[in-house]
Design a protein around this nucleic acid. Structure first.
Lengths: 226, 226
DNA sequence: GAATGCTGTGAGACTCAGTATCGTACGCTT
DNA sequence: AAGCGTACGATACTGAGTCTCACAGCATTC
């Protein structure tokens, strides 16, 4: 599935021209001519002028889906975090391309729409996965939607920050930091099944409760565990 | 700002034709001819063929923004919930149109993309608002993103459910239910400023911690409050 | 009441994305 | 060398969206 040299050449030519003259000012004819092929050939490799900017979203989407499928309910959160890392890694691998695309997309509304649409596909994927995971629990669909949107939002926030900074640092640490928020939100939304592996949320009390009230209640509760 | 009769007529004709023949099979010429005007006139009222389906998103967006601006930090959550209700109300008011559009959008990828793009504008609006609200606190941008995405996700989930059901019930109750989740998530994400009004989340511990460890830690922490 | 200007409309030409078809040259097999 | 499949080029076509110009209606003004 290695990309053909012609396809590669077309993509590079296109991006160069888009940056030189602007997206709207560059016609498909220009790209094809400069790449030394015919217009027909361009449309053979890319279904549209926009697609030349977003080549392998399908492949990436498939990778994400594969990672999610390769998990059981116990490891759902791990699978989700892994999947998000896969996506971010994809951008980081081709930092050069990602950055050029980022600048381009920021300037061209049509491309921005396209990008947003492709993000929606990831969100949908996560939503379906989480929906299956939560199936049967109350408000499963709603919570799946919220969880999926959080995952995607966290990823996008980290990615955008990294891109804005010109890809000048390792974004996986911020990603894990962001995912901590998401995981806590998950736990929170998931609270029917109790807390997770390494943390036990102990209690919540009316603010009016005195420290002694709190201590008493906790002592009583812990008593049943000893 | 009442819509002109010609514009109205064009929109109605377009939707009827889209439903009869399909979106791609209907040309702008068809619409204009059937509405009794020229092609030029169509493009005077709508900048594109897609736009005839999504007429007043701009106005709605402005309403939402106005509602958000008309609030101080204290009432941020209230403002956000209100804003979401405004959006849902807009769909419910024109239930007939909303339903027709929903069915259409479900079948035509180009329209779906357009819809998704417009949703992103709402999310951006909420993100900026929440970002201002949280400005100066740690991870403000990240938490703003998460909160905004939750708000939008909740709304969309409720709206989609209502549309799928053919608009056969009052969606504001489910909306409030969904917003409860969102609000709790907010509180959770907001915990730097302390928890909400009536709850105090006390602590989280490694599951391996013995009850005594827990008690000691809590006692030490509460000590500083007495 | 004619000249003036503004506004909405129609007509037509033009660009360009995207589709479909056909012919052909090249490389590979047997 | 004959046959075959694949990739490419050439060409024509549809339809969206832009632009320009001409004209008609309608008000104002002197």
């Amino acid at each position: 599935m290695a990309r053909s040299p012609t396809s590669q050449r077309l993509a590079e030519t296109a991006i160069r021209l888009f940056n030189e003259r602007g997206y709207d000012e560059t016609t498909v004819d220009d790209i094809a001519a400069r790449a030394g092929v015919s217009r027909s050939t361009f449309f053979r490799y890319y279904r549209s002028k926009e697609e030349v900017i977003f080549p392998d979203h399908d492949a990436l989407l498939a990778k994400v889906e594969a990672r999610l499928r390769a998990s059981t309910a116990d490891t759902a959160i791990v699978a989700i975090c892994d999947a998000v890392r896969i996506v971010l890694a994809h951008y980081v691998e081709d930092a050069e391309v990602s950055l050029r695309r980022y600048r381009l997309v920021g300037r061209v509304p049509a491309l921005r729409h396209r990008e947003i649409a492709s993000v929606a596909r990831y969100q949908r994927l996560f939503r379906e996965y989480v929906g299956d995971w939560l199936a049967g629990t109350p408000d499963a669909a709603l919570r799946a939607e919220l969880m999926a949107s959080s995952v995607v939002a966290a990823h996008n926030q980290v990615l955008r920050g990294w891109l804005r900074a010109g890809g000048s640092y390792d974004p996986f640490e911020p990603l894990d930091h962001a995912l901590q928020y998401v995981i806590r939100t998950f736990r929170h939304l998931e609270n029917l099944e109790g807390p997770g592996d390494d943390q036990v949320v102990v209690a919540a009390f009316p603010r009016s409760a005195s420290p002694d009230d709190v201590m008493d209640a906790i002592r009583a509760h812990l008593g049943s565990r000893q």
